[in-house]
Design a protein around this nucleic acid. Sequence first.
DNA 1: TTAAATTAATCAATCGTTTGATTAATTTTG
DNA 2: CAAAATTAATCAAACGATTGATTAATTTAA
Lengths: 213, 213
Amino acid sequence: MNQTMEKDKTDKKDHILDVAEKVFAELGYDGASTRLISGEAGVNMAMLNYYFGSKEGVFLAIFERRIATFQSSLLAIGNDDTANTWDKLDMYVDSYVERVVNNNCFHIMLNREISKSKKTDMTDQITTIIMKNVTVFQDIIATGIKTGEFNKDVDQQLLVATIFGTKNYLINTPHISSRVIGYDVMEQDNQEKLLKPRLKTYLKKLLKAYLQN
Amino acid sequence: MNQTMEKDKTDKKDHILDVAEKVFAELGYDGASTRLISGEAGVNMAMLNYYFGSKEGVFLAIFERRIATFQSSLLAIGNDDTANTWDKLDMYVDSYVERVVNNNCFHIMLNREISKSKKTDMTDQITTIIMKNVTVFQDIIATGIKTGEFNKDVDQQLLVATIFGTKNYLINTPHISSRVIGYDVMEQDNQEKLLKPRLKTYLKKLLKAYLQN
DNA sequence: TTAAATTAATCAATCGTTTGATTAATTTTG
DNA sequence: CAAAATTAATCAAACGATTGATTAATTTAA
C-alpha cells in the first residue's frame, strides 16, 4: 500500500520533469512559463512549487535526475584497465553517443543555458557537471599520448571542442543539422537506425585519422 | 548638416544594436528585457520601439546589420577559381574563423535562438541564413572529392557538423571552453593572439588528416 | 514655426509565486 | 474497530512584480 503510493507520487513527479524537460528544450528556460509546463503536464500550477519549490527547482530536479546515470556510465569506462587506449576511446565514443542521443532534450536544455555568457549559479553548476565528462575524455587522450599510441603532435584541448562540438551541432541545432544530413534528427526512429551508428563510426574514424602516428 | 544628423542618428541606432547584441548574448532573447537593454545603452526605453518598432524588431535589426558583410565574404571565396581545392579550403577556414570570432556575441545570440527545437518564424529565418554558409563549405568538399584531391570515403555531412560544431563549442559555451583551453575565450586580446591562429591551424590540420587520401 | 527626437508616466498582459480552502489518505486515540 | 486527529495532495484565485508597448507632453533642431 505504502509502496504503491510512493510509486505513484514518484511517477507523477517524474512525469512533470519529463514534460518540463521537453518544454525547456523547445522554448528555453526563460521562454517556458510555469503555466505552460503545468498545463502540458496536466497538473495544477501550484504543484510545481509544492514539489520542487520553484521554477529553478524544477530545472535543477531535471538535472539531478539525469546526473545519476550520467556519472555511473563515466566511471565504468574510467576504471576499465583491461582495454588498450584505442579500445578505450572507442568505448567512450559509443557510450557518449548513446547517452547523449537518448537524452537529447536534456542536452538541448543544458547547452542553451550554459551558452549564456553571463556567469550565474546555474552556469557554474552546469559547468561543473560537464567538466567531469570532459575530463574523462581528456584523460584517455593524455594516456594514449604518453604510451605512444597516439601522435604526440595533436591539440588535445581543441580536440575536446571537436568531439563535443560535433555532437552539440547535431543535437542542439536540429533545424540546421536535419537539413544538412537529410532527415529529422529529433525523430527517435531516425536516431536509432541512422544517426547513432553513423555518428559512432564517424567520430571513431575522425579520431583515428587525427590521432594516429 | 543633414548628413551629420543622419550620421549621428545612425551612430545612435548602431550603438543600441551593439549593446542589445551583447545583452542578448549574455542573457538570451527572453532573458534580456527591453528596460535592461535601453538602460545599458543609456537611452530611454521608448526609443527602442521608436527606432525598431518592437523587441523582435531590435533582434532582427541586429541580424540584418550582420548579414551584409556576412554574404559578401562568402561570395569572395565561392567565386575564386584560381586556387586549387586545398587552398580554397584553407581560405574558407581563415575567413570563417576570422568572421565568427570577431562577431562572437552575434553568433552566441544566433545559436541560442536556433537551438529552440520548436519551429518558429525566427528559427526559419536563422536556418536560411546559416544554410548559405554551410552550402559554400559543402561545395568545396564536393569539388575536392570530384577532382580526386580529397578522399572519397568521407562523411561530407558529418564533417559539416564537426567544423561548425568545433567553432560553436568554443564560442557558444565560453564557460566550458575557457576551462578546457586555459584562458578566457571572450577576452578580445586572447582571441586575437591565441584563439584565432590556433583554431585556424587546428581546423586545417584536422581537415587534412581526415580528407587526404 | 514645425517636424523630429526624447522623455516620464502609464497601459494591459503575463510572469513566478503564494494563499486559504478542500479533498483524500493516513495515523492516532479511546 | 471506529471516531478523531493529523498529514499530504490538489485546487482556484489572487498576489506583487515585471514584461513589452504606448501615450501624451516636452525638448531639440532646422
